[in-house]
């Protein structure tokens, strides 16, 4: 009960995000023969040795765990592609490069369950970590540009996990702006840091009174 209601404030838990990402498709190369699977979430197969098939990640992982297939890492997970993305992320200050919506979860799942199928795994892993850091830094700096007039924020190609991480903060911040903006409708645009300071001051006062 508590976990459910807590989960509601940030909408999705990390586990739920992973669950969602497990439905993304990857290519596998089976080493066995199996009839097509007609599942609730779709039809997959038939599976023939050495012939690639496209399945959801959870299915790929299940087969991989039993040694029935190798997973082909998606194209964007190559050293070459990731280096390009990283460079582009570093070059542009505001733009985000397009990566799969669930790139963090997908790469984590594959690192965990299919490490022997990923060429240059250490390189790939550190590239993804770098990309994540650069992007997150960008998210943080773009948050600084919010002001009291922000009534909606559009973000291009932010990933699922990134949204989930900033969601609680952004929601509260925008709400606070809206509330304060409603109190003083015609004032000049305030410096960005103002409302959080007010908030802090109020909190400070409260603790003082408490003592």
């Amino acid at each position: 009960m508590t976990t459910q209601s807590e989960a509601q404030s940030s909408a999705f838990s990390a586990e739920e995000m992973e669950f969602v990402a497990e439905d993304e498709l990857v290519d596998i190369v089976p080493n066995m023969r199996m009839e097509p699977l007609n599942m609730i979430c779709g039809d997959f197969g038939p599976f023939l040795p050495q012939i690639a098939a496209r399945v959801p990640i959870w299915l790929a992982v299940a087969l991989k765990k039993r040694g029935k297939c190798t997973i082909r890492p998606p194209e964007w997970m190559s050293v070459e592609k990731l280096t390009q993305v990283l460079e582009a992320e570093r070059d542009s200050e505001k733009e985000f490069q397009s990566l799969p919506f669930h790139y963090i979860e997908i790469s984590r799942l594959l690192f965990h369950h299919a490490r022997d199928d990923i060429p240059d795994i250490y390189m790939v892993r550190s590239l993804i970590e770098d990309i994540r850091d650069v992007r997150f830094h960008k998210v943080e700096t773009s948050l600084e540009t919010f002001d009291g007039r922000t009534s909606a924020v559009q973000i291009k190609s932010l990933s699922a996990m990134e949204v989930n991480i900033v969601r609680p903060f952004v929601m509260k911040a925008l709400q606070a702006f809206q509330k304060l903006g409603g109190l003083v409708p015609e004032s000049d645009p305030l410096p960005d840091s103002r409302p959080p300071e007010v908030d802090k001051a109020a909190k400070g006062r409260r603790t003082l009174r408490g003592r």
């Binding site: 007039r149 909606a152 924020v153 559009q154 190609s157 949204v163």
Partner: peptide, 17 residues
């Protein structure tokens, strides 16, 4: 406040709103 912001969305675009 919201009125001075022109808002439109392209498919696949994310927004806080």
């Amino acid at each position: 406040l919201s009125m001075d912001l022109i808002l439109e969305m392209e498919p696949g675009e994310l927004s806080f709103i």
